[in-house]
Simulated assay, not measured.
Amino acid sequence: MKFSPKQTAFGRHETFALRYGWLSKGFHHLSRSASSLDKDDATVKLGVGKNMVLSIKYWLKACQLVDVSNQPTELGRLIFDEDDGLDPYLEDEATIWLIHWLIATNPSQATSWFWFFNKYHKPVFTSLELTTALGDWVRDVMVDGKRPSAGTLKNDAQLIHRMYCQSVISNRMPLEEVLDSPLSLLRLVSQAGGKEFQSRLAARPGLPIRIFGFAVLSLMKERKIKTIPLDDLMYSRAEFPAPGPVFRLTENDLITKLEQLVMKYPKALEIRETAGIHQLYLLQSTAPEKLLQDHYEKSQEGVVV
């Protein structure tokens, strides 16, 4: 979750955006055998081309569902296990919000995504401006390390808005080009007209409170703290991500969601003002994964959360 210029990854997606079915299919295959996607018949089993197999392997790592050795992570099993997973076939939109958080807070595997959602704050931009800004940031933070090529950075920048925008369908576009990524449902990036795109702060009523809570508790766990200023949740500080920019929340909506979260878990969380600073306190140890389990349990009961 913490950014390090010594642990970065660019351009490993083979220019393919994450697609529906890829995470479920890929995870289920790797759960049976960590080498299953390296075998010659992987293309047949997954029904995709060779480069797409490489892309699926990458996105599983970027989404923190498998580790660098292609072994399923605990979180991956919690969500996508075929028998006991909370949402093994990506049927709940909450899982898409979760996947977004996992990508945008994984700087070692999805560095460009971490940068865009945590460090890039221009609400309206062109693809060229995005590419230029990404290149400038890489030069600033990777002073001593090996930097990716300009072409690699361009591919990453273009894929970011392509993966989060809903397609404008044209009769001349091949089918493969209009298969939107599930992340486009979140509407965190949209076309603004002409060659411009926009990614603005807004109220996000579709973001489930417990998925938001998972993000908050995960950040506190990573930082090994039990108290966090609300500003650190609204703005990316130092090398850490923050829910505010990752979910593109306005300050008012962030505070509203925190208040709703505290109402649902009054024994575990509390907002206090100390010396003029509003902070969130973790009153008792609560695993972030508990909030995920609570969400899916309520969702199965038909309760709106």
Rank of each mutant, 00 (worst) to 15 (best):
A34C: 07
K45V: 10
Y281G: 04
T152I: 08
S184A: 15
L233I: 09
T250F: 01
K61L: 13
T274K: 14
Q166C: 12
L153T: 06
D144R: 06
S55M: 06
F247M: 01
R139W: 11
Q166K: 15
E273D: 13
S127R: 02
M173W: 09
D92T: 04
L86D: 08
R147L: 09
D232F: 04
E129Q: 11
V124N: 10
K154H: 13
F16L: 06
R19N: 06
R147H: 08
A110H: 02
Q198I: 05
N70L: 14
W115P: 04
T152E: 13
D83W: 00
Y235C: 09
D92F: 09
H161K: 13
S33R: 11
I96Y: 08
A62P: 12
V178T: 15
W113P: 00
L175D: 15
L98F: 07
K25F: 08
D67W: 02
A62G: 12
Q158D: 14
L23M: 08
K39H: 10
F117N: 00
V138W: 01
L261D: 03
H121D: 14
V44E: 15
I99D: 04
Y20D: 12
G47A: 03
F247H: 01
W97C: 08
W137D: 05
C165M: 09
E273P: 09
S190Q: 15
N118L: 04
R19W: 05
K267G: 11
G206N: 05
N106M: 03
I56Q: 00
K50L: 10
H295Y: 15
V304Q: 13
A150Q: 14
D180K: 00
E14M: 08
G26M: 06
A157D: 07
V138T: 06
G135T: 00
S167M: 06
G135N: 05
S285K: 01
L54H: 13
L18C: 09
L90N: 11
P5S: 11
S55Y: 01
L18T: 03
K6T: 13
G85R: 00
R223C: 10
Y20K: 03
F197Y: 15
L65T: 05
V141R: 07
F16Q: 02
V178S: 15
K267L: 14
F27D: 00
K6Y: 12
T256V: 13
M173V: 12
T132H: 08
S170Y: 08
L90C: 12
W137I: 06
Y58I: 00
A238P: 08
L183K: 05
E273Y: 08
E297C: 10
E14R: 05
A34H: 09
D140Q: 15
G26A: 09
H29W: 08
M142K: 03
A287D: 15
G21Y: 04
I209G: 00
E176S: 15
D180R: 03
S167V: 10
H278A: 11
